[in-house]
Design a protein around this nucleic acid. Sequence first.
DNA 1: ATTAGGG
DNA 2: CCCTAAT
Length: 693
Amino acid sequence: MVFKKRFAFNVHDVPRAPRSMRVLFDPVDVLTRSIKYNPFGLAVDLKSQSKWTVEESQFCAFEMLASLAGKLLQESESSASSNASEGHECDSIGKNCFKQEIQYEDKPLKPKCFEQGRCEASVAASELTTENGGDSKDFRCAENNAILECTLTKMDPACSEEINGDLKYGSFPGNVDGHSPYFGESYNGKTENAFKQERDPTGLETQALNISNKGPSKDPVKFDRVVKLLSRRDPVPSVPFTRRRNDIKLGSRDDEENFSRFKRLSKRFKASRPPTCIGDRRIRKLLTSKYWKVATKLEDFEHSRFVSSYFLLIFVFHIFQGGKRPLYRKRKTYTLYKQRKIFDRKSVTSSPGKDMNGDKCSTAAMSDRACGISSVFTVKFSIKSFRIPELYIEVPETATVGSLKRTVMEAVTALIGGGIRVGLLLQGKKVRDDSRTLSQAGISCDDNLDALGFTLEPGPAKAPTTMCSEEPPLLLSYDAAPQNLTSSLATPAVNTGIPNCTLNLPLLTNSENPATDHEPVSSKTDMPTDQSLLESRALVPVPVPATNVEALTAVTVNQKFQKSELAQCRIWRPFSISEVEALVQAVEEIGTGRWRDVKLRAFDSTDHRTYVNLKDKWKTLVHTAKISPQQRRGDPVPQELLDRVLVAHAYWAQHQAKKQQSKHHHHRHGTPSITDTTEADRKGVARVPIGTM
DNA sequence: ATTAGGG
DNA sequence: CCCTAAT
């Protein structure tokens, strides 16, 4: 369907990031100040949702609303808008929420349903700016409640059907110039208009929705995201909503107290929550002081909310524990968000493509400059939907705020430490030939700049440590974006590693007024296929100079992190032949099933090889040995080693079978075993008989 | 903490 | 390589 075509983001086509570097939130958000406002750009693991309590999810919903409402209240104090109307009907909320016509490229798509949260949020926002009239407060609070209610309700069945029950991504409208599109928009009977406006107020809004092609209950990707990258002094919060109520899990927090308060509040909401969308009568009923009290609490919570948001954001990071321990290790950890796997496996395994010739690249860059193209491209960078898989962070409750910040910063740095590459899209197609000039590629200065788009892809996952230590922190700077872009073309290609995630950069041609009607090109892009992703490796890494540090958090990248384990762990380290040999040797002596011993024996000094690694490697070795040499990929393992692998594997499999048998035998007859072969094994006595090889 | 097996 | 269940 068109909808899918247009907006689908096929998860299967998205390469996986190294798990160490998966983040749920939008790093760009972090890089801008929206960090404060938008801590909810997260996806969740449906598998885990059963574990989440209603309260938790409600709390989250509340938190989101609080975030939005509080900010809007704040906003409205300075600039009160007065074109909101009265006499609202909840029906208009609910219904209009579900069927909205998406305007896209002058091509109306058929009515689609969007996530309720978004629509509601926009309604809420416009309402909340209303400061006139005696009932405005009451109304506001009622509205809040209604909103929350709607948020917590399920999706319209018809809609979910339409989107295959698997609508995953939505993006929240970005606010580009500090002027929220929500503001001053009455939703009374005009929700659609408001929504349209919201949908694409500036032309920044692109491929808002992503749909997973996987099964409905598997690998859900659903977090809303819009990044406001362009400069804004006082950005209005963009509040993403998760579609379902159970989507967010909260764990223990530092600000326990606030949490409890929130919990209490959410309980109140819960108590007052009608089963479905609130009707007219409901609304009236809600216009009681009781709810207003709640609403006013929003302001009370304003302060703590920021703290909460901060933590929430922090917790969106997940640093996986594995062979390496997180920086902070303590029993009580904050395990906040769980996310399903965004990325499909198959995209990971591909081997790097042919390297781009450096000379060619320079030539291309020179011709670019010769064309004077770079000076013509006055563009603004907008980044939306920077989706990165999860990162997991553990911090002890005794950790200081500063250390928390550092940890996040480290995670971010680790994430982008491998460098970021830019992909070029022309008319939605990837322009891969870096050696071509812009004109050769069909990019001309005066016509189709609108058709130009960029993607950001993670740089080589390989050796991020060196990347970190040798290069300045990679900071995205929107101010320097055009320069970065053009200069990036001149950057010699270093194409190793595997793209981990993509990020679409809609391009704007008007720096003065981003709210032009330029359609971001990336939205008309069919999402990259595996093929294109493979080839995207030829893209150029872009070391972005740090020109706007303040756009980042107040945290600085500490030097220590440059060499920290964080940066080192979880990177792909192919086993070398010698390592394989050592592994084979060890397994021959020790056997399968005692990987700890194997590790101790053969890889004691290599801390990055865990016994799990070794076991996995053995597994793949066995597999490799079993398949025909033609089917083998990657660096070829000497057949001799593979033969040994097979022999050892067979031997120890048999050995294990014997053990099992004797065990059962003993169980049946109650005969205790005296001479257990395991003893001999442990001493390294037993080993694959050489003769069998 | 290890191990085994699925993804 | 990751994740998880089972031990």
